[in-house]
Amino acid sequence: MDLRRQGPVARITFGRPEKLHAMDAAGWRSLAALLQEAGADRQVRAVVLHGSPRAFCAGNDIGEFFRLATPQEAREYFLGFVLPAMEAIVNCEVPVISAVRGRAVGGGTEIVLVSDLAIAGTKAAFRLPEARIGVWPTVFAAAAPYTLAHKPAGLLALTAQELDSHTALRCGLVHQVVDDDLVGDAAHALAATIAEGSRDAIRRTKRFTTARLRTDGMAAVRDALTELSDETLGSPDAVEGTRAFREKRTPAFAVTTTSD
């Protein structure tokens, strides 16, 4: 993962392009650290997150799930790595803008969700496939009520269908759609416009516009990640779903499942 300053704008580029920028523990940790570094820089007025033309971010590396053998290990992973990265976006002193080209899957869509602003290319696509592998999009389900209306949020989280960029625009997940080769320029132009303002004014504005997300929203995210760790991972559906994913077949979920 890489951080570069371009005048008053910090550019963070996700690593592991060979895996479509799928995030492992090191990736989540690096994202949190770079966001904290950029937000603490008095010269920075905005941060832009980048992937590559094929993908913005493919979310959690599915290989991480296979290594989480116990609820305790799952809690340590999600609350120790994923949650701090999401909190770093929300709590960053300056606005964070996602520049989305290609696919944003799972945690990649959730990064877009909690960003302050997002620009999408015409070929950008968004998907939350977790339900198809027996788990659920915890960060999105918990945070979306604080950023999106519940109907568009439910459409994406419950169906696991892929949204094109124009549908994402109508849902409010992104703020502008441009040609794919203009995504980076548009995101940085937006950041530069923000950067023309006083850093103190920018910081205070973000603090108030994200107030409910920072408090109630991120508390809900923590609760959701804990429930995922304690109750979902290791369940029959999660075991079958991840095994089917690895074997490239349709999962055979149980007709009935334990409910709360």
Rank of each mutant, 00 (worst) to 15 (best):
Y77W: 09
G80E: 06
M86S: 11
S98Y: 08
H50S: 10
R54E: 14
A99L: 03
V90I: 09
L68F: 01
R45F: 00
E87L: 07
D41L: 10
G108M: 03
C57E: 01
H50N: 15
F66L: 14
V82C: 11
V47Y: 01
H50G: 08
V96C: 06
L68C: 09
E73A: 15
D41N: 15
R101N: 11
P84I: 02
G63M: 08
V94G: 01
I97D: 03
F65M: 14
E87I: 03
L83P: 04
P53R: 13
Q43Y: 07
F65D: 07
V48N: 06
E37K: 14
G106Q: 12
C92K: 07
F78N: 07
N60K: 12
S52D: 14
E37C: 09
R67H: 11
E37N: 13
G107S: 04
F65E: 05
G107C: 09
C57R: 13
V90F: 03
E73T: 15
G59P: 01
F78M: 07
C92V: 02
E87F: 04
S52Y: 05
R75C: 04
E64F: 03
V96E: 00
L83S: 02
G59S: 06
G80F: 06
A69D: 13
A40I: 00
V105R: 14
D61Q: 10
Q72V: 12
E76M: 12
Y77V: 04
R75M: 06
R103G: 12
N91P: 03
E76G: 07
R67L: 07
L49P: 05
R67N: 10
G63Y: 06
G80C: 10
V90M: 02
A104R: 11
G51E: 04
V48G: 02
E93Q: 12
G59Y: 00
A40V: 04
A88M: 07
V105S: 09
E87D: 08
G39H: 10
E64C: 14
E37W: 05
N60T: 15
D41G: 10
F81C: 09
